[in-house]
Nucleic acid binder design. Structure first.
Length: 298
DNA sequence: AAGCCGGGGCC
DNA sequence: GGCCCAGGCTT
């Protein structure tokens, strides 16, 4: 008997969320109808673990400078890393340039529309491939990001938050909610992500402004606490290799040319950590060392 | 499944 | 000061 509720709830959920989205969607540049598929792909890679507000200005500058995959493919990697600025995880910038080169070499300079081809590109995983297929090409795909996971966990499953690591069950649920029609599916993807980003937020959800509060399982259950709160652990930051790597990259971005490696290893009080991080950056292709000096890759 | 990989803003 | 963010990749 309970299962008979689901199809009805699903239909109402989709309708209400999409209607809300049509009225109040943020005006983001990569959503413009004039935005290229490449522009959409660039935005998705930048948005991997970096909030919209920080991505938008970097995206605008990036697209003005390198409007096509061929433009980025031909750029200096040092310029690419500097343009990436402080978006974080600079390996993403490296992969994005590799991605551009693969698109030029294997796809004639055009972003492929098939999810299979997209997911084969460097830096493009399940989420990004589905997002580009939907947003750039209007393809039907199952777009599951942190926002969609949270929205479905609350509205359908009735929990405060999804489990710490994604489960196959979540993907099945997400797939069952996607409309059959490709255009509707793409709109649902954008709308459900937007709801999670703007209203159904992780920290303090704005349930009083939510278009689906009357059917949300979590809200109807009295918004119970997160059941696996004890299993979540935030990423440490102070004193980590990630922090040291970030400092090294910042120095190299800010410098116009080579920097003494001794100046780079000074960023950590622990010499072993400093040399380990520098070696790791070289291994990752983010830094080149030539004798006593280091620089961003040409 | 778990760990690694930036950086900043907000509660 | 902990937590979160339109994840991907490696082990």
């Amino acid at each position: 008997m309970p299962t008979t509720h689901r199809p009805d709830v699903t239909a109402r959920l989709r309708t209400a969320v999409v209607r809300w989205f049509d009225e109040s969607a943020r005006d983001l540049p990569w959503r413009a109808s004039s935005c290229s598929a490449w522009g959409v792909l660039v935005s998705e890679v930048m948005l991997q673990q970096t909030p919209v507000v920080r991505v938008e200005p970097r995206w605008r500058a990036w697209m003005e400078r390198w409007p096509t995959p061929a433009d980025l493919a031909g750029a200096s990697t040092a310029d690419v890393l500097r343009a990436w600025d402080r978006l974080g995880y600079p390996r993403r910038a490296l992969r994005l340039q590799e991605c551009a080169r693969v698109i030029v070499e294997r796809h004639g300079g055009q972003v492929p529309a098939d999810e299979e081809a997209l997911v084969a590109l460097p830096g493009v995983g399940t989420y990004t491939a589905a997002a580009v297929a939907a947003f750039a090409f209007g393809r039907r795909s199952v777009v599951v990001d942190t926002n969609v996971r949270r929205v479905l966990a609350r509205t359908i499953t009735g929990t405060a938050l999804p489990p710490p690591s994604p489960r196959a069950e979540e993907r099945r649920l997400a797939a069952s909610v996607v409309p059959d029609d490709a255009r509707d599916a793409a709109r649902w993807a954008a709308a459900s992500m937007e709801l999670g980003a703007v209203v159904c937020t992780a920290r303090s959800p704005r349930c009083d402004e939510c278009p689906v509060r009357s059917l949300c399982a979590w809200n109807l259950a009295g918004r119970p606490a997160d059941e696996h709160a004890s299993r979540r652990r935030g990423q440490a930051w102070e004193g980590t290799d990630r922090q040291v790597r970030g400092r090294v990259m910042r120095i190299l971005r800010d410098a116009s040319g080579p920097v003494l490696t001794s100046a780079l290893t000074d960023v950590s009080a622990d010499p072993a950590q400093a040399s380990r991080c520098l070696a790791g950056l070289v291994e990752d292709g983010l830094v080149e060392i030539d004798g006593e000096v280091a620089r961003l890759p040409a």
